[in-house]
Design a protein around this nucleic acid. Sequence first.
DNA 1: CCAGATTGTTGGTGTAACCAACGATACACA
DNA 2: TGTGTATCGTTGGTTACACCAACAATCTGG
Lengths: 158, 158
Amino acid sequence: MATPTNGYSGGVGNTANPTPARLRALPSWVINQAAIAANRLTDGALAGTGTRRYHFAMLSALDEFGPSSQADLGRCTGIDRSDVVAAVNAMVERGFLQRSPDPADGRRNIVTLTPAGKDHLESLSALLDDAQNELLRALSPVESRTIVELLTRVLDSR
Amino acid sequence: MATPTNGYSGGVGNTANPTPARLRALPSWVINQAAIAANRLTDGALAGTGTRRYHFAMLSALDEFGPSSQADLGRCTGIDRSDVVAAVNAMVERGFLQRSPDPADGRRNIVTLTPAGKDHLESLSALLDDAQNELLRALSPVESRTIVELLTRVLDSR
DNA sequence: CCAGATTGTTGGTGTAACCAACGATACACA
DNA sequence: TGTGTATCGTTGGTTACACCAACAATCTGG
């Protein structure tokens, strides 16, 4: 393939389809691509359950910390208050959560995990565990723990 | 705050606002949260340049591999063909790219990086480098390289 | 020559992440 | 006691990213 006057010599198409070195070396790009893969896998695992990632995060929080206000729920999961509203609505409707006004504070609702919600959480956990194994299949157990630890440090630094 | 009959004892609100252990131990969640932080930082760095992450990825590819078709561009950056169209449009309009039909293949366009585009790429790179340092400020250089290497292995495994 | 693949393009989807604003309520403190 | 500040739930938005389906035009393998 001779190089014509316009200088075109095949570009990216010459070989397979490598990722530009600039991107491969850019932590934010690598992290984001990994997140895309991770979300694809988890969304796939949750598909058919009628539950999304937001829901799982909130179920986890309620299971661990007990009944909480919507604002606290949002803070500990990193979900915006306004998005918590919709998520709680959906899960109340399915009988996984109960929402009641806080008698001690007229501004708050108290959101509680129902037994059905707890059961649902456990079944989701199993599905997600499989997805994690698939996601990290190229890493050893030690490496998997390392990656979580390093990323956790990154998160804690802000 | 006495525990009333409904069993409410403060939930998440009791202490600061910890993240549920279930989420902290879930690689896909940690990776996603890190990506949210990473994207926030990079979007902040790119704010005011009129350029988005998609654009930077394509500029990087063209700089490294030379003139390429839109399809190849999409494949090596992980961007959908249809999204490449819009991104190329925007950057042609700003004079950073040139789009011309491939004389050797009537289906293809050849997208070329202009000198102005190259300059733009370099200035973006500097901005993004700062964002990386900010993102990974809690990690040592070795740890930063480790995290990129491990995540790269994850990406290459699919 | 024909079947099948590929390309650019249009037009669409969903949704995660976010922001502003509101009325209602709580709280600090003068 | 009142008054300003802050917080709560909620509504109603916005944005961009990641997708998908379909199309006509074009190329390629057999």
